[in-house]
Design a protein around this nucleic acid. Structure first.
Lengths: 340, 340
DNA sequence: ATGAAAGCGCTAACAC
DNA sequence: GTGTTAGCGCTTTCAT
């Protein structure tokens, strides 16, 4: 038996240890936590027995007593796990370093399921939670989220009210930089297949797009801006519609990489070359953007960093100041590849 | 206030509810769990108040009492999240349907960290756990894993001892099918860039490779079989070495998609065409295999299904029979794309 | 049909 | 230095 309590045997508790040593469970508890009021002698004996019996503290009991579980909830929306994966890694890294575990819940891109996910997390008495690309960013959900009296923050997507906490990248800046770059490199007319308007990010990216056009004296043309769900299929179909309409297409900027992958396939299928005939760029820089048929020019969201900072800020809120206002906006970076 | 206990206010418990209704906490508890010994009248009143006060049961307290937490541990190895993502989704789906939550732990591709991850999960008193592409598949770790007296199983990767539980795909069959297909379509000499030997999967895939060669009367040539870590970089470098050596390369089969992506880039960089000059195939079918520079022919592991079945089997072990022996081997499927 | 009491394993407050 | 008591919120007996 290497460690732990063997199946079937009754678990080792503080009391078990105390009985064997003829001291109280309290003393054992104190000894284990290094309380100086316990003699060195006793502490030594306790630690030895703990080792021998492979005692593992019952964190459930501890949590009930101390009212903290050392767990963080992470709600994700399943649409694009390729976007979440690095965020999860970043969260997990910081959390585990600070002694927290992650309980994962999937919202399945559905408001009701997301609320249910939060309720489930709360019933597990997580110390705080994070919402990645949440659908609950609107003011109307604020009271729901606040009602639990637990710190929380948004990752990747901003909430719509002033007082909310979030860790995001600067979508206006990133888009503006990219559009600016495209214009400087000879794109005059840029089709924009943006993500759906229901997502707060969409408005920010549109703003960046408009600002860049304006700065370069190009008129905004509503008729070449589209909004679709962030999926391969919708990107593919929207691009096909545009191409089928027969109007000249010079440059396409997509609101996220998954849309761009769909658009890319449509463009290639119809016999156009990228970037010779049509230049293509987008946003996110998911892992495989560089491995696509044509490596994709895109704006890199610091996903891993967002995860790290999110966990760090949340733990800050939990341990230091519940009312901390988190408003972290990271600068994204242009990644120029062959698609432009 | 929409629901939950407001920040600052003291939490609503069974006792709170009981006091308002002038009944005992016990009665409230029973009413909530639909115990027939409580009158309809009372049950109705309890439910109404629960709604009003937004009572949420404290699952920590419940767990302490009942000795079950309704949580499942999932240990992943961070090497290729693109491989895990669908597995996690499958696990989460089944788990949440059955009322379980997932605690995630990352082993960071490191044996000691993986053991530490398991210990952390156990200290949270998870009801069972899963190890995805674990490094603890060897006999020497069995007693460690068994010592906690908690059901567990392996996902994606098999343990090396008879009595262990796992949900995997048939690597011998999958590889054999693919190699067989390649041979039938005119490949006679197939370079094999397999994953590292330390991974149990490697041996299975090599066996499939050898069986297919043998069945087709082709001699096994040790000199064109390589073992590298499953990463882009190692695939890229191994392929470059082979190409630089100047020997003729006709067909390359990689032990996993990430290696193939690296190999693909090397092949293209050196000016060869896929599949005209070199045919390329591999194993896994990660999400972006179909979006690569050259869409990849590969063996599809049923990743989502493995997650679903894993969670289902584990819950079975937890609720029905601790000693259930799980030995699920799913048949993979060939996916033929442009790289061959 | 309802309640009182005990206890899950732990920690905190306060004795001695 | 160490022990006693109490209680976190819940469920489970066993009375009534």
């Amino acid at each position: 038996m290497e460690e732990g309590n063997l199946a079937g045997k009754k678990p080792v508790t503080l009391k078990t240890i105390g009985e064997k040593l003829n001291i109280s469970a309290t003393a054992v508890s104190k000894a284990l936590r290094g309380d100086r009021s316990i003699s060195e002698e006793t502490t030594r004996k306790v630690k030895k027995l703990v080792e021998e019996l492979n005692y593992r503290p019952n964190s459930i009991a501890k949590s009930l007593r101390t009212n903290e579980t050392k767990t963080l909830g992470l709600v994700i929306s399943d649409s694009t796990l390729s976007l979440f994966a690095p965020v999860i890694e970043g969260v997990e890294k910081v959390a585990s370093e600070k002694g927290y575990s992650i309980i994962l819940a999937d919202a399945h891109s559905n408001v009701e399921k997301e609320k249910e996910a939060v309720r489930t997390l709360v019933s597990h008495r997580i110390d705080g939670f994070m919402l990645a690309t949440s659908m609950l960013t609107g003011e109307e959900h604020k009271s729901f989220l606040d009602s639990f009296g637990i710190p929380y923050l948004f990752l990747l997507r901003k909430c719509e009210y002033e007082s909310g906490n979030y860790v995001i990248n600067d979508n206006v800046y990133g888009t503006c930089q990219m559009i600016n770059h495209l214009i400087k490199t000879n794109s005059k007319r840029i089709h924009f297949i943006n993500i759906a308007k229901s997502i707060t990010t969409a408005a920010e990216r549109e703003r960046g797009y408009r600002e860049a056009l304006e700065a370069n004296g190009i008129a905004f043309d509503k008729s070449i801006v589209y909004n679709v769900n962030p999926s391969f299929d919708e990107g593919y179909h929207q691009m096909s519609h545009i191409l089928d309409a027969g109007e000249p297409v010079e440059t396409v900027f997509c609101g996220c990489d998954m849309i761009a992958v769909g658009a890319m396939n449509s463009i290639i299928e119809k016999g156009y070359r990228i970037p010779e005939d049509i230049r293509l760029a987008s946003y996110d820089d998911i892992e495989f953007a560089k491995y696509l048929r044509v490596p994709l020019t895109t704006v890199r969201q610091p996903k891993y960093r967002i995860g790290e900072l999110g966990a760090q800020m949340l733990i800050e809120m939990i341990t230091k100041d519940k009312d901390l206002h988190i408003d972290v906006v990271l600068k994204p970076e242009l990644v120029l590849r062959e698609s432009t």
